[in-house]
């Protein structure tokens, strides 16, 4: 008998809760899944029918070895997908969590295995990870800015407003200041930037651009530093005002 994806999700939840707390109760499950206690209880009962667990008094849930294994398996799939979404596609944490749940049931075992392998290869060859990711981050930002602009042309919806907040040094006009929130880039360039004092939390002001608009002069902490546009683009800031 095949268990439904919904029930699988419950098993995963119980497994994850069991990692965090000594005893898992039905109410905990209900809370974690954001459902009513009776709904959770039905699901737990189903799982009990499959033999993955049994319940003690007061709704205390004991996972069987089978259930633990199955739960761990589902959770590891979940982790892989979440990692893929969050660390590689750079989707925000919340969305990654939610969508990993949706994806984990739809993929075949083989596909998942390949994905895992793929991510591992990427992670282990740092050069590849770095150069690919830099490019990806760059084009991602461009899309964000474009969609934000498009959004502004039409109706200003809230999501594009939020995207606009990831500004880079390029967005500063002469005299404006911002606070560095992320230093991108890799290797030599990034170290040079960091060594010169451009690190997270530092306040930085745009002074002026060169006559041909590139490079740009910035001032921070009493030092003046010039960056090419392509380099300034790697440094994300939060607006100061």
């Amino acid at each position: 008998m095949k268990i439904s994806s919904k029930i699988e999700d419950y098993l995963e939840t119980i497994y994850r809760l069991s990692l965090k707390m000594d005893t898992v109760g039905v109410t905990d499950v209900a809370k974690a899944r954001n459902v009513s206690v009776p709904t959770a209880r039905t699901a737990v009962n189903r799982l009990q029918e499959f033999g993955f667990l049994h319940q003690k008094h007061y709704g205390k849930i004991i996972l069987h070895e089978d259930g633990r294994k199955k739960g761990e398996e589902i959770f590891s799939v979940h982790k892989t997908l979440r990692r893929f979404l969050r660390d590689f596609l750079l989707v925000d944490e919340e969305t990654a969590e939610k969508e990993a749940c949706k994806m984990e049931h739809g993929l075949s075992h083989e596909t998942l295995e390949r994905l895992q392998m793929f991510l591992q290869v990427l992670e282990e060859s740092e050069v590849c990870e770095k150069s690919c990711m830099t490019k990806y981050e760059k084009s991602l930002r461009k899309i964000k800015v474009d969609t934000a602009k498009a959004g502004n042309n039409g109706k200003e919806d809230s999501s594009s407003q939020r995207e606009l907040k990831t500004m880079t040094l390029l967005d500063l006009k002469p005299g404006e200041t911002g606070i560095i929130s992320k230093v991108g880039g890799y290797g030599k360039l990034r170290h040079r930037i960091l060594d010169l004092g451009l690190h997270v939390g530092e306040s930085i002001a745009m002074v002026k651009t060169a006559p041909l608009k590139d490079p740009i002069e910035f001032s921070l902490n009493g030092n003046h530093i010039s960056l090419r546009r392509s380099e300034a683009e790697l440094i994300q800031i939060k607006s100061n005002g």
Binding site: K188, I193, P215, N223, H224, I225, S226, L227, R228, E231
Partner: peptide, 10 residues
Amino acid sequence: EVAPFVMELP
């Protein structure tokens, strides 16, 4: 190699 420009204006 792409040499960064990041440079101090003393």
